[in-house]
Design a protein around this nucleic acid. Structure first.
Length: 569
RNA sequence: GGGCAAUUAGCUCAGUUGGAUAGAGUGUUGGCCUCCGAAGCCAAAGGCCGCAGGUUCGAAUCCUGCAUUGCCCGCCA
């Protein structure tokens, strides 16, 4: 495998931090202060453009420590900063903010770096090659994926894309919950449908069984394929000896359907891991033995408990029931233990938000096993409520009345569905309106960004017709880009690395869609105000550089989101 | 009863480590195509950042209490 080279050099912010650090060190030395905690230096993008490109509150921070007036300290720092040739202007404002403005050539050079980085721009070495396992969807193979699973799928997949981009080595994993009671119920439900088809059962399917119509379809399939081969033992409802056949048939078929749906949604997995494997291979026993060795298990009332409360959980949890059956939690401990053994440095689980109470106990287990609690993160994904043109659509998994992911993707398209799921932070509730997501010509947010991309492509097609080319001359590169909105656009592009780093650090994906939306808005606004292709060759050539760089970043964003970047719409 | 989270414009939501005059979309009202794509742009109106205290140069952001809402609290998975 080739190693991805980090092509982005310094973002402007990091450059400015260096200047400020240097100035602080100089002033500190002059005042006889030895060490200053330089990590505390904060550089911000001011809200008001008039304040400059960057601003620092360091003078106010130092004021307390040095027992001096912040504006005085600011003035001393300004004297140092004025020596930097990249800084066009340094001013002290308000209570002691230091506002800095960079020179035009400085920004033009930054644009050049961005363009030269090409499709790799803003790739980070934040992850430093550490191995991450993102586990998501992991829906029980008892029915088709619904829209809630779709959100989890989008979040997990984009998380994996983002972390890969940020320098981690990432694998995606689907944990197949193919052990336990619900699989028995699945088998019984299919068996009942099968018998119904043969006229041996009438009326409503019993309470507690899976009611969805997909089981009836499966039963038909089963009857057509191999119905004749089923023995009396297979269909004996008194004795579950033959149940395994139905369970396996249903689970395999449903899992295959799930794979197809995810494929349609643009989501693939490196690993599909079976829960059953953990019981049959003795991995659960190994994990429990490990915990026992660490002296965090005890017996009480016939059951075996894990002392999770010692690690911050609110109470201890049962791992082996009094009847000798190991709990789901026990297999989950074994599962996560095995993930670490496979060599992953960081585990990320994407769960439904109703599982939030489960986080402390799993974290406790991870800590008890000797791993850093920070090496595990659970991303909680809130429910999706579905509506159509403003009126809610009722959903009930048990009653089998729900809109499947497949239906949604076929109706609104992969791009719109994915984008919609990522416009809000994952732990806040989301209303998904089918009509809105489907609308192709007005209110749909996904088209806003795609349109910006297509629009730039259109400009380039036009430029080619007119024989105008981007300005590649190093001496005059981008030199005519001096409008405030042009500099704002370069700043926005410059800030992309910081944006991705914060998204990767916090695991918050909505930051990408917000950034993309803002960048597209700036582009549209610029386009409406200024013509890219003009009589002036230098201006046209420079503006093509700028919009070309914007197209590049929009495409990176869309790719990270798994959304297409069309050249025409 | 205990725990976790949330509360920002009519509605849906952003708001990096505490920073300067609080942001977007949508909705409402009014403008912009003889001009590179109007799936776009511009402007106006709209706020006790749930309430009350505290911390400090400075709070939507941190702390405490209260109110309201959602979720979780099984030897289920």
């Amino acid at each position: 495998m080739f190693r991805v080279r980090v092509r982005d050099r310094l973002s402007m912010k990091k450059k400015v931090i260096k200047y400020v650090e240097k100035a602080v060190a100089a002033v500190a030395a002059a005042r006889g202060f030895a060490d200053v905690e330089l990590s505390e230096i904060g550089i911000e993008l001011p809200r008001e453009k008039a304040f400059g490109d960057f601003s620092s509150n360091i003078a106010m921070q130092l004021a307390g420590r040095w027992k001096d007036n912040p504006r005085k300290i600011g003035a001393a720092l300004k004297d140092e900063l004025d020596k930097e040739t990249d800084l066009a202007e340094v001013t002290i404002a308000g209570p002691g903010f230091i506002n800095m403005r960079l020179t035009f050539p400085c920004w033009h050079q930054r644009l050049q770096e961005i363009i030269e980085s090409g499709a790799d721009f803003a790739q980070l070495d934040y992850g430093q090659g550490r191995r991450v396992l993102v586990e998501f969807v992991s829906a029980n193979p008892t029915g088709p994926l619904h829209i809630g699973h779709g959100r989890g799928a989008a979040v997990g997949d984009v998380l994996a894309r983002l972390l890969t981009w940020a320098g981690f080595s990432v694998d995606r994993e689907y944990y197949v919950n193919d052990a336990g009671n619900q699989m028995m119920v699945l088998g019984r439900s299919l068996r009942w449908r099968y018998l119904e088809l043969q006229g041996q059962r009438q009326g409503e399917i019993p309470e507690g069984y899976y009611q969805g119509g997909y089981l009836l379809d499966l039963a038909k399939e089963l009857l057509a394929d191999q119905g004749a081969e089923l023995t009396a033992a297979n269909v004996d409802e008194e004795d579950d000896a033959g149940l395994e056949f139905f369970t396996k048939f249903a689970a395999d078929a449903i899992l295959a359907g799930i794979r197809d749906d995810l494929d349609l949604f643009g989501v693939g997995f490196e690993h599909w891991t079976s829960e059953k494997k953990f019981f049959t291979s003795g991995l659960v026993d190994d994990a429990l033995a490990d915990l026992k060795k660490k002296e965090v298990l005890y017996e009480e009332e016939g059951a075996t408990w894990f002392a999770s409360s010692r690690f911050g959980d609110e109470k201890d949890r049962v791992v082996v029931r009094a009847n000798g059956v190991k709990t789901y939690f026990a297999s989950d401990i074994a599962y996560h233990r095995e993930k670490y053994e496979r060599g992953y440095d960081l585990l990320i689980d994407v769960w439904g938000a109703d599982h939030h109470g489960y986080v402390p106990r799993l974290k406790a287990a991870i800590e008890a096993l000797g791993h850093e609690p920070e090496s595990f993160a659970a991303i909680l994904v809130q429910l999706v409520s579905l509506s159509r043109g403003g009126t809610p659509v009722a959903m009930s998994t048990r009653a089998g009345q729900f809109i499947t992911l497949e239906e949604v993707v076929r109706e609104v398209g992969k791009d719109a569905a994915r984008y919609f799921f990522l416009t809000r932070r994952s732990d806040s509730q989301l209303d998904f309106d089918l009509e809105l997501a489907k609308s192709k010509n007005n209110d749909n947010p996904v088209y806003y960004a795609q349109y910006a991309h297509a629009r730039i492509c259109s400009i380039f097609r036009r430029a080619e017709e007119e024989g105008v080319k981007p300005n590649c001359d190093r001496a005059s590169f981008a030199a005519s880009l001096t409008l405030p909105e042009e500099l704002d656009l370069i700043k926005k592009l410059d800030n992309f690395t910081a944006l991705l780093e914060s998204a990767a650090r916090t695991l918050e994906l909505h930051r990408i869609t917000y950034y993309l939306d803002e960048l597209a808005a700036q582009l549209h606004s610029y386009y409406n105000r200024n013509k890219v292709i003009t009589e002036d060759l230098q201006v046209s050539g420079d503006r093509l550089l700028l919009v070309g760089a914007i197209r590049q970043v929009i495409k990176i964003c869309l790719t990270l989101l798994g959304v297409s970047a069309p050249e025409k719409m």
